[in-house]
């Protein structure tokens, strides 16, 4: 197995774990908060999901930097200044700041969930559609718009299931 294959396999696995866990985190939060009380078993499930999410994030970030390392030693340094890469890094930074703000209870759960969910899927989207050549701020503008849309949809879902936060 070459270093490139190792990094690509790890990056895909990390992203699957992260985006999958972010999705299930949202589903389980809705299920857990339907009665306004998080039972010990529900709390246990959520802790497991968040652990998977963190592992996915670390694996995806390390393998992502692995690619950049390969660009460096293969003489493809120009790829490191690609706007899509820096947009992806910005999204990951926002994801990290959001997790801190959620932990410190400085952001409402609804918007924290919307940011986390959208950020993971934005990273997946940017990884899947490699041909995108949009400017940095255009990518971020779409990302912000997606957060607002996801927040709006999540609010409707919370209301539908009677989630009590």
């Amino acid at each position: 197995m070459t270093l490139y294959s190792l990094f690509i396999a790890s990056h895909i696995i990390g992203t699957i774990l992260g985006a999958g866990a972010a999705t299930f985190a949202e589903i389980f939060v809705i299920k857990a908060l339907k009665d306004g009380v998080v039972e010990p078993l529900e709390s246990d499930y959520l802790k497991t999901i968040y652990t998977v999410l963190r592992v996915g994030l670390i694996v995806a970030v390390i393998s992502g930097f692995g690619f950049l390392f390969l660009y460096r030693i293969q003489g493809l340094e120009g790829l490191i200044y690609e706007t899509k890469l820096w947009a992806k890094l910005t999204v990951v930074m926002i994801l990290l700041i959001n997790a801190i703000m959620l932990q410190a209870r400085k952001i409402p759960l609804l918007w924290g969930s919307a940011i986390s969910f959208t950020s993971w899927y934005t990273a997946v989207f940017l990884g899947l559609f490699r041909g995108i050549s949009a400017p940095y701020f255009e990518i971020l503008a779409w990302y912000v718009l997606a957060i607002v849309a996801v927040g709006f949809v999540l609010d409707k879902i919370h209301n539908h299931f009677g989630v009590k936060i």
Binding site: I58, I62, F65, G66, F69, L96, I100
Partner: peptide, 28 residues
């Protein structure tokens, strides 16, 4: 030298991940 550079990158990221985890833990 490539291995040394990769070591620098990977362990640097792991250290930052560790610091970030410490931050999360201290907020509890």
């Amino acid at each position: 030298l490539s291995t040394i550079l990769l070591t620098h990158v990977v362990f640097g990221i792991l250290a930052v991940a560790g610091m970030y985890s410490l931050w999360m833990m201290l907020l509890k």
